[in-house]
C-alpha cells in the first residue's frame, strides 16, 4: 500500500469542466484530489492506504457509476462513494444509497453539501479502515484457533453453559473449559461479553 499525503478525494466525471471544478473545490479546502474521466481509469489506479472517498457521476459512458460501485464491491474495495448526477432520479438515488453510497447529490449542488459529504465519507473510510484493521487482527487471532476451539467459541457466544457445550460437542465439560480458556486467550478477550463482540465482528454463525 502506497502511502499518500493524507486523505484523498477521487473524482470520476466524464465532463472535464466538472472534473476540474470539483477538483478545484476540494483542493480549496485543503484536501487532496485526483480526477479520472472513466471508471476504468480509476480501477487501474493503485489503492492507497490513506482514507479516501470517491465522487462519482452516475452517468458515465461504458461503465456507469453504479456498475463501478458494484465492481468495486465485488473486488472488495470498500471506498465510500458520493454520487453526483445531472438527473434527479429517485429510484436511482435509492438504489445508490441502498448499495452503500454516502450521498447522492444532483447537479448543480451546493459546494458545502459536497464538502460535507466528502468529510463524512473520509471519516467513514477512516473508520472503516480502522475497523477493517481490527477485524483483520481478530481474524488472525481466530485463525489461530483450532477447529475445536472454534467450535467451542461458537457455542460460548450463544450463552451456553459449559455443561451444555460439552453435551453439544460431545466432550467433557473439563475439555470444554480448557478450550474455552484457549479461546479467551488466543482471542485476547477479557470477558465473555468481549468474546461475543468479537464473534459478532467476525460474523460467526452459530451452529444449529
Amino acid at each position: 500500500m502506497k502511502s499518500a499525503a493524507g486523505p484523498t478525494v477521487f473524482i470520476i466525471d466524464d465532463d472535464r469542466s466538472m472534473r476540474q471544478a470539483i477538483q478545484d473545490l476540494v483542493e480549496s479546502v485543503g484536501l487532496r484530489a485526483e480526477a479520472f474521466a472513466t471508471g476504468q481509469d480509476f480501477l487501474r489506479k493503485q489503492p492507497t492506504s490513506d482514507p479516501s472517498c470517491l465522487v462519482l457521476d452516475v452517468r458515465l459512458p461504458q461503465m456507469s457509476g453504479l456498475d463501478l460501485q458494484r465492481q468495486l464491491a465485488d473486488t472488495g474495495v470498500q471506498i465510500p462513494i458520493i454520487f453526483i448526477t445531472a438527473h434527479g432520479d429517485i429510484p436511482m438515488s435509492v438504489r445508490a444509497l441502498k448499495s452503500g453510497a454516502v450521498e447522492f447529490l444532483t447537479k448543480p449542488f451546493r459546494d458545502q453539501d459536497l464538502l460535507d459529504a466528502i468529510q463524512q465519507a473520509l471519516q467513514r473510510d477512516s473508520d472503516a479502515r480502522e475497523q477493517r484493521a481490527e477485524i483483520h487482527d481478530l481474524q488472525g487471532r481466530y485463525q489461530s484457533l483450532s477447529a475445536r476451539e472454534r467450535e467451542v467459541m461458537t457455542l460460548v457466544v450463544t450463552g451456553m453453559l459449559n455443561k451444555q457445550i460439552a453435551s453439544e460437542v460431545g466432550a467433557s465439560e473439563a475439555t470444554v473449559k480448557i478450550h474455552r480458556g484457549h479461546v479467551m486467550q488466543k482471542m485476547q478477550a477479557g470477558s465473555a461479553v468481549e468474546l461475543v463482540r468479537m464473534a459478532d465482528k467476525l460474523k460467526l454463525s452459530p451452529r444449529k
Partner: peptide, 8 residues
C-alpha cells in the same frame, strides 16, 4: 454540466 461546473 456546464452550469453545475460553473457553480462549483
Amino acid at each position: 454540466q456546464p452550469i453545475s461546473a460553473s457553480i462549483t
